[in-house]
Design a protein around this nucleic acid. Structure first.
Lengths: 210, 210
DNA sequence: TATAATTAACTAATCAGTTGGTTAATGAGG
DNA sequence: CCTCATTAACCAACTGATTAGTTAATTATA
């Protein structure tokens, strides 16, 4: 009846903490996430969290970097061999949509951070968010210069795309419930492909010249 | 040197607590808002919060009802003597935009609540949110039947409008800062009228028949 | 054996909510 | 108009639970 002794693996432990932290932070938010709870989820002692990440804030920033680096890299990769702005825009939307759908902590985390005025937003998050927007804006800009888009306010268009996609992901359970309750059409059975197809179609129409 | 004694006014105190709670909940979120802090802000004893609102959750729901009733009533009022779907849509967007701008706790609170899957969202909030969406969807529906709109998925269009407006409000300080740092165009000097005008124009173009 | 990984047990602060009591306003009877 | 009882409004001080973060000792591994 000896206790099953755990293998020691620093990398694995550190990664495990990060992965669990992503789940907890994105579902509960920063301040409702308890380090005790996180430790239990990892089956590690709470002190290990501080051993690897110093502070709760430090862990949170590591989570952010992980998530935003991932989506940025994914979009860059998918856009690699496209040169037409119209197709780049399409690819951006489609890639973001798929990623957001399969990594739903991204929309949760972004919306939560954007829901206040960013007074205490970590600098790293702010930096990475700007990077993603700049990428999007540059696609639009090239499109305008090539004459495929007109009358563009990039910031608004960006939020029309990314904001909508994020909300469609995070509200999925609510939309299903709302449909069950009042029978209203909440797009509750749409999958992410349909959503991004529709969005692409509409954004194109919106930006195209008469 | 007698201490300046406070007049007793139950209604005023109760209202004061609610007003301060709106500010705190929308800027800090539910769990980061301390009842102690709120009491200090009201210059009342903490026990008074529980005297009037029983629990923190109860206070939060009172806050929600207050905010969402207000925006709903405002939109209904502004739409009262309009019958054309196109104008109704325009009025909805314009009214929502102005309200969101002058009551910025609304976007903060909505985005925050929508950023998780709504597992612990108060029933009252869910109910009021549906009401607002149903109003919007019915405008679109009438428009489709009258032939002014085509190819409409109301849920997506709703988020394109409301999601974008909410984000433009909450991110205002961040957008200004981003513009200062990288010189990028973040629509940082746009006022809410320009934003809603642009949005109306684009949404119209999006939904109008060829 | 040296050091990296891990732990139990702790601290000090903060939290929502309660308790038991103290004022201030109110209304009725003299 | 005054007085006294009733009650609504208010508060200081508390409870018990939870929090982020620390420490000092203990394993496992190279």
């Amino acid at each position: 009846m000896t206790k099953p002794m755990k293998k020691r693996d620093a990398k694995k432990s550190k990664k495990l903490i990060l992965d669990c932290a992503i789940k907890l932070f994105s579902t509960n938010g920063y301040s409702s996430t308890s380090m005790e709870e996180l430790a239990k989820m990892c089956d590690l002692n709470k002190a290990m969290i501080f051993y690897y990440y110093k502070t709760k804030q430090g862990l949170y920033e590591a989570v952010i970097i992980q998530i935003l680096d991932e989506i940025y890299a994914t979009i860059i990769k998918e856009n690699a061999d496209i040169s037409k702005p119209m197709e780049e825009l399409e690819s951006f939307i489609k890639t973001y949509a798929l990623f957001a759908c399969s990594h739903s902590y991204l929309p949760s985390l972004l919306l939560r951070e954007l829901s206040d005025s960013g007074a205490k937003m970590p600098k790293t998050l702010f930096f990475h968010m700007r990077k993603l927007y700049i990428l999007f804006a540059s696609i639009l800009d090239r499109g305008v210069k090539k004459g495929c888009f007109e009358d563009v306010i990039p910031m608004i268009v960006y939020f029309m795309v990314v904001g909508t996609l994020n909300l469609m992901v995070t509200t999925k359970p609510l939309r299903i419930k709302a449909h069950e309750i009042d029978g209203i059409d909440t797009c509750s059975t749409c999958d992410m492909d349909e959503i991004s197809e529709y969005l692409i179609k509409k954004i194109k129409k919106m930006l195209k010249e008469k």
